[in-house]
Design a protein around this nucleic acid. Sequence first.
DNA 1: CACGCGACTGAACATGTGTTTAGCATGTTG
DNA 2: CAACATGCTAAACACATGTTCAGTCGCGTG
Lengths: 209, 209
Amino acid sequence: MCSDLTTQAKIRNAAIAHFARDGFQKANLRAVAATAGVSAGLVIHHFGSKDKLRSACDDHVLSVLVRRAREDADPAGMRGVMEEYLADPEEYRLQVRYMARAIEEDTPAAATFVTTMVAESEAILRAGIADGSMHPSSDVRALAVLTVLTSLATLTMPPPLARALGCESFGPEALRRLAVPTLELYTRGLYTGGAVLDAAKDALKETGS
Amino acid sequence: MCSDLTTQAKIRNAAIAHFARDGFQKANLRAVAATAGVSAGLVIHHFGSKDKLRSACDDHVLSVLVRRAREDADPAGMRGVMEEYLADPEEYRLQVRYMARAIEEDTPAAATFVTTMVAESEAILRAGIADGSMHPSSDVRALAVLTVLTSLATLTMPPPLARALGCESFGPEALRRLAVPTLELYTRGLYTGGAVLDAAKDALKETGS
DNA sequence: CACGCGACTGAACATGTGTTTAGCATGTTG
DNA sequence: CAACATGCTAAACACATGTTCAGTCGCGTG
């Protein structure tokens, strides 16, 4: 990190780190101020309140993440995102984690982010279906949501699940381990026959009325 | 809810509801006490501290959830869980949400829960592969983790993603919408060819050393 | 220089919240 | 009956934390 940043920017970055790590509630201004190397009062002096600070962080992370997502829009929803994640600039992990927290708490920026991601995913899926590289789906929208959801879940895998994989905590290692099984699932599926799908369709037809 | 419960049980249930809805931090004892119809002091009188209360809730939810999971162990990891979720006793939604929060915060009970679920998933997958109803996988363990992860993510889908699906918030409606695309993915896969999988394998071989 | 303005600090303030304590009611026991 | 344990409450306490305030430093400007 270059240290020749605006004080505002230093505070914002410190806040992003703390919010991402501890959550908005648990993070406290004095700690944020400390890692930014300033006093608690200054944080408020620049941002007005903890909530406004959060908004600033939201907007910043949103813009960075959306820009990145647009840059490497790849097949399969967030595959591009995953690749960049594998390369693993620590900063990127932070921002994804931050956004995941924002999504949980249903922040406006998070809504924008999700909308963007789902739209982009859907476009990619439609393109893939059109050119024959992907199977058609009965509900492309829902499939797009599913893609984003699983990508996000994977990228923010909680520690207990990472440990189930033999990793101390989530990181590139865990992601590498998941990559092949995931893609196997995406190319062959899991079931050898259509029985489960048919059964589900029937079940839904009954309940669906 | 039957109101002929021990006061302790009433408090515990109220706490589970609040922890699930607001998270452990944000939930406060006075509110919990209020919905339990008692005073704040009594909560501490019975449980000793907020942390101990959390432990009690953890253990309770864990036991209920594990019991349920064992009862309807079905193919595909948590498909049984999903079915029960579709039937939608409000209480069940609560407990799943509670456990998701516990997993995020890496509680001991959550670790046990995850371990159990992954083990069960893995067993189911191995059985399915053995009897030919599922495709073999290069890493069954990782596949099991993936299954649990996506199931959990689906069941605790955050509001923004639910809205992308046209639902106001997550519920049986959203789950029904996702069911068919999910199972389509699980039976046909997404890609029509193996190009992406092969590319990923190559990429990992390079980075993997 | 004098002035003012913005960055900045440290201490004070306000409030929300976990916990403690003193006390009250009730039922049980010696 | 007296003593005591138990379930319970309300008020007080302790402390963390968001926010405010008064004042200092440094710097550009009239």
